[in-house]
């Protein structure tokens, strides 16, 4: 008995030793990645929070501790409030349109045909095209004199529209372009989700007499809930971070009126990198972070956590 106990203890020690070595190996393996991630992500984010409490200069981002003054000033700054309003409008429309359109496109492409890969590629192409050239091309498309869009509209007798000239149309123009850019990504995610839904669910609904509409709304959409949540969260975060297209489309003598499409990241950029108000820009970044965090929690709350956990779909049992 004692010998058995001793063997068991030895075996346990060896296992513990092996386990310990494994763990050390694992930690050592991921340490460089964690170190790089901390260096390029975590530390700057932490520093940003610290900087937001300081008045800054070009050489010293922590010139003078001012507490919450930057935050108080922010909410009195008409340009920040304007950019907050513009960003919210932009995010709302881009998120809603890009999700709705992506679901519809995915529903159309869900049944595989010979041309499916071609359509999927066509819709996905804008996603992989870099934003700067895309924004430049769209700026040409929107040109009031030579733009393709006005040329097409002229076939229907519509007078030239200064898409990027007037505040109301400039925002619409940038929303259209951004939806076009992102919809392919959302579509692919929904397509994967839809193709992962077991055929038996749809067949069962059809046997019960469900119409195509009913299958879509009562079976497919509820089963897509976790993916819908993921796409909503990602689209919202991306939309609140909008910058490149705004920057490109407002530059130059024919650029859109800056304030009409001024967004938070553009305002952060201008304060941080043009006027060197690093502390103030950091405070704006903290507010942006808080907004995105809040919206993500709300979206999780509305969808009941990380999706409908009761329904298990897919061969792997993924929810």
């Amino acid at each position: 008995m004692n010998r058995n106990n001793a063997n068991a203890i030895t075996l346990r020690r060896r296992m513990n030793e092996t386990e310990r070595k494994k763990r050390i190996f694992v930690y050592c393996s991921i340490l460089p990645v964690i170190a790089i991630f901390a260096f390029v992500r975590i530390i700057p984010i932490f520093k940003n929070f610290v900087y937001s409490l300081f008045e800054s200069t070009v050489v010293n981002p922590m010139q003078e501790f001012v507490g919450l003054k930057n935050f108080v000033d922010l909410f009195r700054d008409p340009l920040f409030l304007l950019s907050l309003r513009n960003t919210s409008i932009f995010a709302l429309f881009v998120t809603v349109f890009s999700v709705v359109l992506a679901v519809l496109l995915a529903a159309l492409l869900v049944n595989q045909s010979k041309l499916s890969p071609l359509y999927e590629t066509l819709y996905f192409l804008p996603v992989i095209t870099p934003m700067v050239p895309v924004a430049v091309v769209w700026k040409w498309i929107y040109d009031p004199t030579y733009g393709l869009l006005n040329y097409i509209l002229s076939w229907f007798g519509i007078q030239p529209i200064g898409w990027l000239v007037y505040p109301n149309t400039a925002m619409v123009a940038i929303i259209i372009m951004s939806v076009w850019k992102i919809v392919g990504y959302n579509m692919i995610i929904f397509l994967v989700g839809m193709r992962d839904i077991p055929e038996t669910y749809i067949e069962a609904a059809r046997i019960d007499g469900a119409s195509t509409n009913q299958v879509f709304w009562k079976v497919i959409i509820p089963l897509l809930k976790p993916i819908l949540l993921f796409v909503f969260v990602i689209s919202t975060i991306n939309s609140f971070n909008v910058f490149t297209q705004v920057f490109v489309m407002t530059s130059g003598a024919q650029g859109a009126p800056g304030n009409a499409v001024r967004t938070i990241v553009f305002d952060i950029y201008e304060n941080g990198f043009r006027y060197f108000r690093t502390g103030y820009a950091a405070a704006e970044a903290v507010v942006l972070f808080a907004i995105i965090l809040l919206l993500t929690f709300i979206q999780f709350g509305i969808s009941g956590g990380s999706g409908d956990k009761k329904i298990k779909i897919g061969k792997g049992g993924a929810n």
Binding site: Q159, F247, T250, S251, G252, A253, Q254, G255, G258
Partner: peptide
Amino acid sequence: EKGNLTRSGHSLRLSGQG
């Protein structure tokens, strides 16, 4: 003929960032 400007008399800078 529709009253749209096709040539400006003097080009002023009316738009753009910066």
